Amino acid sequence: MARLGRTDVDVFPLVLGGNTFGWTSDENESHRVLDAFVAGGGNFIDTADSYTADVPGNSGGESETIIGSWLAARGNRDDLVIGTKVSQHPAFKGLAAGTVTAALDASLVRLGVDHVDVYYAHFDDPKTPLAETAGAFDALHKAGKIRVVALSNYTAPRIREWLDIARREGFEPPAVVQPDYNLVTRHRYEREIAPILAEEGIAAVPYFALASGFLTGKYRQVGPYRKALPYFQLIGAFVTGKNRRNKQEFGEVVRRVLASRYFTEAGLAVVEAVEEIASARGVEMSTVAIAWLRGRPGVVAPIASARTAEQLPALLASAEFELTEDEVAALDEVSARVE
């Protein structure tokens, strides 16, 4: 287990992402994934109130509802660390104080719990004064509805501003930050955010640990959906009209489009390096990629999702897999070339 920053919360060094639940994983398969994660030693589950509102047929909160039904069936709430997020649910947009409070109450109902362990501001809300948002999170912490204040997708200046407000007002400060960080997305986190986290004792829990599947080696060609459209236009066209598909097909396209962001000579060189190490050590590429991320300064537990229970062993293996110094150096060097 690893300590979550300066909190008293201990977590397994891999977080299970719940963004597939109610999307590419139906309720039964989601329960299988959750069972397998816990059986493998996992205890930290990550979701959001908005997962997965942008999927055809969904309205938001599906992931929380599925996790809630699993918690009720297994009766294991006290053994787990549950993290969820606010700001993107269609009914609770933004981070005004009233919105944050109402959104959490709705999340608690869907999850069937009386508190969440880690509560993230999912995306910054420039329309709401940061002091108002920080105050709302502090009030929920004092009320016992959240244990840990956390931030996701915040820039370094806004993290510092939240910390300054917390010190000035006596608010509970953020103890966890969730950045976009992996072998092909390094520089912004390492140059701007990591120094703040080291200075403040804040834990990093990175998402996109496998770069939307790119680091598994599955996506090595742009594929038929890339075309010349910007991402949101492409997804919008796919969801509507003659391009409408079921959730599984939609999920595959989203992953392929997201992975295509990394299709550069430097990005593909990283994939080759990961593959070489994985082949030599007899493990999956995902094990190698997440093990590298787990070993980075400040990183407590990377987040990875599994569509099926059969995908979990390679992810869980990353919690104990140790790269050699030479392997780390090789990955450091090749990934540093990705801009």
Score class of each variant (00 low, 15 high):
F92I: 05
K93V: 13
A96E: 08
A97P: 03
A97V: 02
V100C: 06
V100I: 11
T101Y: 04
A102N: 10
A103P: 00
D105G: 09
L111D: 02
L111F: 03
V113N: 02
D114A: 14
H115Q: 09
Y120F: 08
A121I: 04
H122C: 02
H122R: 06
K127M: 12
L130V: 11
A131F: 04
A131M: 07
E132G: 03
T133M: 05
A134M: 12
A136Y: 00
D138M: 06
A139W: 06
I146L: 13
V148K: 00
V149S: 01
V149D: 02
A150I: 06
L151M: 09
N153Y: 01
T155Q: 12
T155S: 14
P157H: 07
I159A: 06
R160V: 08
W162S: 10
I165M: 08
A166V: 08
R167V: 09
G170A: 09
G170L: 10
F171R: 01
F171Q: 01
V176E: 01
Q178D: 12
P179D: 09
P179G: 07
D180R: 15
H187N: 10
R188K: 14
Y189H: 10
E190I: 05
R191N: 13
I193K: 03
I193G: 03
A194Q: 14
I196Y: 01
L197I: 02
E199H: 11
E199I: 11
G201A: 07
I202A: 03
A203P: 00
A204C: 09
Y207Q: 04
Y207M: 03
A211T: 12
F214Y: 15
F214R: 03
T216H: 04
G217S: 08
Y219I: 04
R220F: 14
Q221L: 12
P224F: 12
Y225G: 10
R226H: 14
K227E: 14
K227Q: 15
Y231F: 15
F232D: 14
Q233D: 13
L234E: 15
